[in-house]
Nucleic acid binder design. Structure first.
Lengths: 203, 203
DNA sequence: CTATATACGGAGAGTGCCTCCGCATTGCAA
DNA sequence: TTGCAATGCGGAGGCACTCTCCGTATATAG
């Protein structure tokens, strides 16, 4: 069998309750966690076009089980990257709290760039699923946008960033660039420097 | 029958020769043109996720015929947008010839933005097919990059644009932004203005 | 221990890209 | 005009993928 030997790295909020007050069955919880772990491994190994079947196989469950836990492909992707997105938002809050407004913006955009170089699977899936279903509410997308908005508005209030764009504009620009299949580290930094020059208020 | 009544708007370089000196068969030429016309219509009507089958149906040919003329989906997309891409390159050349270097850059990027708002199907397909097959040589992609390079290097030689990025960098940034599913006219112009501010050499 | 809500899992429906190959058509040559 | 390759046609079907349905199995409450 292909059961992963992982020692359950997903704490997965305990004491969860079903809608009837009945506790979540332990096998369901176990399979949920296994699926997230398996998805992380398979995405890392096979890239963003890994099939759902491959993930189910790796997790040792059937396709039906996978889809009961994660009705759409994007739901699974969101679960895999949940922690990362949370950290992105936390990083934004910390940057705003600990640095001058402009430096916070620079730092955070740089962090986003570094992040995106590693998690291109996530950004690409996010982009594509939003493209074919724009009215879909993706909590991870909202949190990313929230992060952009936080650091940008902070800099705008301080008068160091141009006021005529907003967080979603900036996410479109930087996120679009970061999902480019050719983006490398050096190129990303060059472009980011240029964007920052355009973003800074003329002095 | 669904035969389109179009009066063959595709001149399609006449006197074409097969590799043996034998002329291209007339039915092949006719089907080729029909397919391009049908693809244009179907893409306009159904968006970028139109199926190849739908296009073949609209053209009144079988799937086999479609794939003989256009082995990959992207080949058909390229054929549909061939003229547009040519015009993009011509516009770049004219801008460089008729305007001051910086103005040429501004004008052409603005033209690219206007273009991309209408032809998002093309840009999106181009991006996706390059993503899943990066070593694929797409002549349209090369011509777009060539256009970016032309206007950018012209401005750089004149010393009015920053020298630390190149045409493919700029294409990544602006092209990425333009394939964003939410991009509107006003938003695009705001972001473009910002990019231009970052691109202009500090004075 | 039993009953029942809950979850499992795999067959298969639906869709889309692309291929294969027997048949039809075309255009050159005699 | 007619014969005959060469060339092209087209749709059945292979393959891969996402997602659903439902009979079967199991965990937990009482």
């Amino acid at each position: 069998m292909l059961r992963p030997v992982t020692t359950s790295p997903e704490p997965a909020s305990d004491a969860a309750q079903g809608k009837n007050g009945r506790a979540i069955r332990s096998d369901a919880q176990r399979n949920h966690d296994r699926l997230v772990v398996a998805a992380r491994e398979v995405f890392a190994l096979q890239g963003s076009d890994a099939s759902m079947e491959a993930i189910a196989l790796q997790a040792g469950v059937g396709a039906g089980t996978l889809y009961r836990h994660f009705p759409k492909r994007i739901d699974l992707v969101e679960a895999v990257y949940q922690n990362d997105v949370d950290e992105l938002l936390i990083a934004a809050e910390k940057a705003v709290a600990n640095h001058a407004p402009w430096d916070a913006l620079v730092d955070w955009l740089d962090a986003f760039l570094r992040y995106s170089l590693g998690k291109r699977v996530f950004l690409t899936e996010l982009r594509e699923s939003f493209e074919k279903n724009p009215q879909l509410r993706l909590s991870s997308r909202e949190r990313v946008e929230q992060s952009f908005t936080l650091v940008l508005e902070n800099a705008q209030r301080a008068g160091v960033a141009r006021a005529d764009i907003d967080g979603s504009d900036l996410m479109l620009l930087v996120g679009g660039m970061c999902t480019g299949p050719t983006l490398g580290r050096a190129q990303g930094e060059r472009l980011l420097a240029m964007v920052l020059d355009g973003l800074r208020v003329a002095s």
